[in-house]
Simulated scan of single mutants.
Amino acid sequence: MTVEHTDGRLAKGERRRRAILDATTRVVERDGVAGVSHRAIAREAGVPPASISYYFTGIDELLVATLLESAELLIADIARMRERTPEDGRAWAKTIAENLAEMINERRARTIAEYELYLLAARRPALRPAARRWIEVGASEINEGRGADEGIVKALFAAIDGLMMQALIADEPPVAADFEPALHFLLQPMSYLREVGEVTG
């Protein structure tokens, strides 16, 4: 078997695996986690049902992979935000507010699906490491990784989750300007940590 043929098979396999993960997200968006089954995902992805078992040992493994994929998208969001945001608390509040508003409005269905998977981790331990992935990576970005107090970081992410849950059930979805005052308040301890890091660094 040639290298080109092997590479082609690997690429085809990765495309099919990706199609299955994308299909899982769409099914959760439309029908909730309860709608996830081998047959439903295969139909949505346009692949034979046996393909699901080939790439994933069971539904839990499929859901873990889907949640990790969502976490990687959030991590990419954080990286893009860092690239365009100066190290200033008020600037960060505006940037995060814009991203949350996009998640609530333009990406609403996907955000609901992600939170449904996130909450499912409370019942299914296999999903918990994946559910914590974006928080762990996000925390490592705070204060450029210098001296971020664990309690403050937990409070910040818990508050953001709360803001998002409130936004998802609001009759009128909030826009960036609605998020910004709360985020400016929540980020004040981060500004303090950054200043301490500059003095002691």
Rank of each mutant, 00 (worst) to 15 (best):
A11K: 15
K12M: 07
G13D: 04
R15W: 04
A19H: 01
I20L: 07
D22W: 02
T25I: 13
T25M: 02
V27P: 00
E29D: 05
E29Q: 12
G32E: 08
V33E: 11
A34N: 06
H38G: 14
H38I: 14
H38K: 11
I41G: 00
R43C: 00
E44Y: 01
G46P: 00
P49R: 14
A50Y: 09
S51E: 15
I52M: 09
I52E: 04
Y54I: 09
Y55S: 05
F56A: 04
T57E: 13
G58Q: 01
D60N: 13
L62C: 10
L62G: 02
L63P: 00
A65I: 05
T66W: 03
T66N: 04
L67S: 01
S70P: 00
A71P: 00
E72K: 11
E72Q: 10
E72H: 08
L74E: 12
L74F: 10
L74D: 14
I75M: 07
D77T: 14
A79Q: 07
R80V: 08
R80M: 10
E83W: 09
R84Y: 05
P86H: 11
D88N: 12
D88V: 00
R90G: 02
R90L: 10
R90S: 11
A91N: 13
W92E: 11
W92V: 10
A93R: 03
I96D: 01
N99W: 07
E102L: 14
E102Y: 14
M103I: 00
N105H: 15
T111H: 12
T111S: 06
T111M: 09
I112K: 13
E114C: 04
E116L: 08
L120S: 07
L120Q: 06
L120G: 00
L120V: 02
A121M: 04
R124Q: 10
P125G: 03
L127T: 01
P129Q: 10
R132E: 12
R132Y: 14
W134T: 09
W134E: 05
E136G: 13
E136I: 13
V137Y: 15
G138S: 13
G138L: 13
G138V: 05
A139R: 12
A139P: 11
E141M: 11
I142D: 05
I142C: 10
N143H: 12
G145L: 04
G145H: 08
G145A: 07
R146P: 00
G147V: 07
A148I: 14
D149C: 11
E150K: 14
E150G: 14
G151L: 14
